[in-house]
Simulated assay, not measured.
Amino acid sequence: MAGTSDIEKAADVLRAGGLVALPTETVYGLGANAEDPAAVSRTFQVKGRPSSHPLIVHIGGAELLDDWVQEVPATARLLAEHFWPGPLTLVLRRGRRVPLEATGGLETVAVRVPDHPVALALLSAFGGGVTAPSANRFGSVSPTTADDVRAELGDAVDFVLDGGLCEVGVESTIVDATGDIPTILRPGGVTREDLESVLGCPLAVPASSRIRVPGQHPSHYAPRAQVVLVPPEKVVTEAELAQELGHRVGVFLPAAFGDAEVKAHAVVRVPDSMAAYARGLYGLLRELDQRGCDIIVASLLAEAGLGLAIANRLRRAAGPRAAA
């Protein structure tokens, strides 16, 4: 776990315009000084991320929100009070401190307060905001350990802070709080049910939105292997058929199958707990890549609670990919 000297060094790297991989409760982020357009632009270059895709600005506390946005509607204030620090991102009108490089040219900005002691210590030591998209190549599986970051980005990152395994394991929930009625633009670590309980009204989760936010690309969170989604009851037959056809098949076996044997190259068993599944999802995808699978067969489980975020990640992992 990163200590005080590591955090001070990371803060110095940010001040100098460098990039720092930092742990959050969701995934590891590729951090840059949010007010330094050159550093922010380098983030896009390292990730291979289109410059039109906005970044999330991470700040050290809810009390700092007014410094980064034009106005904070009552609904946004209520959500910040209940869920920060935590895996919730609010989209609001961009304040003057935020360069357009960080927002993909939009007049809105995505902001959150991470719930990780190392991230919060870094934000405190640095004294500013940090843009921190996931610390991986654009479109690939997000990192949930420091080793994941090192394996994927290597020397392109100036400093890596090790904060252990990410507790939540999937990215933050993104809520458009610019209008009268909030909308979930990306399901994530804060569930729709929890948001609705606080707000006292139902929230929509549209398939597309007028505001660009992270995680909307058709193919995202994707391993090298092709991901195939089928109904739970067809996972075994689909996997065994693909294996017979000569593929090296990895299987996400639902808990309902117990210890059933599957004729496949590699089998990982999905945890009963949605929280455990979310925490381990990206690690499992990486594991099947490392074991040489070229197809991963999985299913969507109940889309309630964290199941909504898991389903979102799996659908985008299985999404159409651009031709090489």
Rank of each mutant, 00 (worst) to 15 (best):
residue 60 G to H: 03
residue 311 A to E: 07
residue 208 S to Y: 03
residue 22 L to K: 05
residue 84 W to C: 08
residue 114 P to A: 10
residue 86 G to K: 09
residue 43 T to R: 03
residue 226 Q to E: 09
residue 211 I to Y: 02
residue 147 D to G: 13
residue 252 F to L: 14
residue 44 F to R: 04
residue 301 L to P: 04
residue 281 L to I: 15
residue 98 V to H: 01
residue 186 R to K: 10
residue 306 L to T: 12
residue 90 L to H: 06
residue 93 R to G: 12
residue 193 E to G: 13
residue 57 V to T: 15
residue 17 G to C: 12
residue 214 P to S: 04
residue 152 E to H: 02
residue 299 S to M: 07
residue 186 R to D: 05
residue 256 A to Y: 03
residue 184 I to T: 15
residue 119 A to R: 04
residue 242 A to V: 11
residue 52 S to V: 12
residue 187 P to L: 11
residue 273 S to K: 08
residue 153 L to G: 00
residue 235 V to E: 03
residue 74 A to F: 01
residue 13 V to A: 12
residue 124 S to E: 10
residue 318 A to E: 06
residue 178 T to M: 12
residue 296 I to F: 05
residue 110 A to C: 14
residue 252 F to M: 13
residue 274 M to C: 10
residue 189 G to K: 12
residue 186 R to M: 06
residue 195 L to T: 12
residue 219 S to L: 11
residue 179 G to F: 06
residue 233 E to M: 10
residue 209 S to R: 10
residue 69 V to H: 05
residue 258 G to K: 08
residue 49 R to D: 01
residue 92 L to V: 15
residue 145 T to Y: 00
residue 186 R to F: 03
residue 59 I to M: 11
residue 32 A to I: 09
residue 148 D to N: 03
residue 202 P to N: 05
residue 185 L to S: 06
residue 301 L to N: 09
residue 118 V to R: 02
residue 12 D to R: 13
residue 241 L to R: 13
residue 159 F to I: 13
residue 46 V to G: 03
residue 216 Q to M: 13
residue 47 K to L: 00
residue 6 D to F: 04
residue 286 R to E: 01
residue 246 G to P: 11
residue 239 A to C: 10
residue 253 L to R: 08
residue 131 T to V: 15
residue 218 P to S: 12
residue 271 P to K: 10
residue 70 Q to A: 11
residue 142 S to C: 09
residue 167 E to A: 14
residue 275 A to V: 12
residue 203 L to C: 14
residue 261 E to T: 15
residue 100 L to E: 11
residue 67 D to I: 05
